[in-house]
């Protein structure tokens, strides 16, 4: 396990644990350690971040490390603190306490290495798509040929070619989403912070964004990707960080996290159907079959999915 992560308090270690801890025994007991090898090149290390807004503890000991080329799916219910964390990494807000290093330096110093795609559209309605890319490429230091090359590449990847000369205010929601993502990626950031970049997007837009993100990760870029649509994370082959009430309560590869969740067994006989969820699905199947009172017509064994992981966090995070 990575040193930085060991330094972080495990969930529940410092009294800040929600009172409904019992219902989340599976998750809180999980190995939330980092899925990376110890020799990995760490791009982002966030340790014990705290941020309070009035009565709301938006971040409450948030820890996360991200390696070069890693895509991290940051999931969690509404209000878990995902956006607050990303804004902190982008040095837009400061933590009350805790520490972030990007490539070993302070986030303020490393701004050029980071590209943030905010959750809400943040674009100039009266400027065209091309003007956006020129502005944000330019303020991030891209000039002439290099800028044109990046613009051309993203225009193709994110299917912006047709709408390059149109003002953003008149674009459709999905077109604005693609522009929003392009602005975040234009300077080829080493660490990409994508906060629900596909919210409200149609399958085509979604796929375009995913393909570009996969490409950037394959080139060694690191990504933190928040979404409420979990199949995206499977497609991105992302490792998972589950946030809850301002901290990461589970961390690992999808497969490793799912190992700890029960599978579902369903058996149909006659007009009846019985279901059981169990860690040992074979045992459960045997039990269900032995209880069958008529000829069995259907058997389904379902492995746990990321959706199940999400659902196991059932309680809302609204604070």
């Amino acid at each position: 396990m990575n040193e930085l992560v060991e330094a972080a308090a495990p969930p529940g270690a410092n009294g800040g644990v929600p009172s409904d801890q019992g219902t989340h025994a599976t998750l809180t007991a999980m190995d939330y350690g980092d899925p990376r090898e110890s020799g990995d090149d760490i791009v982002l290390a966030a340790v014990d971040l705290r941020k309070r807004y009035g009565d709301v503890q938006a971040l409450d000991g948030f820890c996360l490390t991200v390696a070069a080329g890693e895509v991290v799916g940051l999931v969690g219910h509404n209000g878990a603190g995902k956006t607050t964390f990303l804004e902190m990494v982008a040095s837009l807000i400061r933590p009350d306490s805790g520490r972030i290093t990007i490539d070993g330096a302070d986030p303020m110093q490393s701004r050029g290495l980071v590209g943030i795609c905010p959750q809400h559209i943040a674009l100039y309605p009266s400027a065209t798509v091309r003007e956006h890319l020129q502005l944000f490429g330019g303020v991030n230091g891209l000039r002439r040929r290099a800028l044109r090359r990046e613009i051309d590449e993203l225009a193709v990847g994110l299917r912006l070619t047709e709408i390059m000369a149109r003002r953003v205010g008149v674009l459709s929601g999905g077109q604005q989403r693609r522009t929003q993502a392009a602005v975040a990626l234009i300077h080829r950031p080493r660490l990409m912070l994508l906060d629900e970049p596909t919210a409200g997007a149609d399958p085509e837009t979604r796929q375009a964004v995913l393909d570009v993100v996969k490409g950037r990760a394959a080139e060694g870029g690191s990504v933190i990707y928040t979404t409420h649509y979990l199949p995206e994370l499977t497609e991105l082959q992302a490792t998972i960080a589950v946030a809850r009430r301002g901290r990461v309560i589970a961390r690992g590869t999808g497969a490793k996290l799912l190992e700890q969740l029960p599978g579902q067994v369903r058996v149909r006989f006659g007009n009846d159907e019985v279901r059981m969820s169990a860690m040992d699905t074979t045992g459960a199947l045997v039990t269900l079959l032995s209880s069958a009172t008529a000829a069995v017509t259907e058997i389904e064994i379902r492995k746990p999915s990321l959706d199940d992981l999400y659902r196991s966090l059932a309680v809302s995070d609204d604070r």
């Binding site: 837009l92 701004r111 050029g112 559209i121 100039y124 303020v139 300077h187």
Partner: peptide
């Protein structure tokens, strides 16, 4: 209103330039 100032602040450009 457009939240664009934050995007500029997150860029590499020095704040005085902005």
């Amino acid at each position: 209103e457009w939240r664009t100032w934050d995007r500029l602040r997150a860029s590499r450009a020095p704040r005085t330039s902005l």
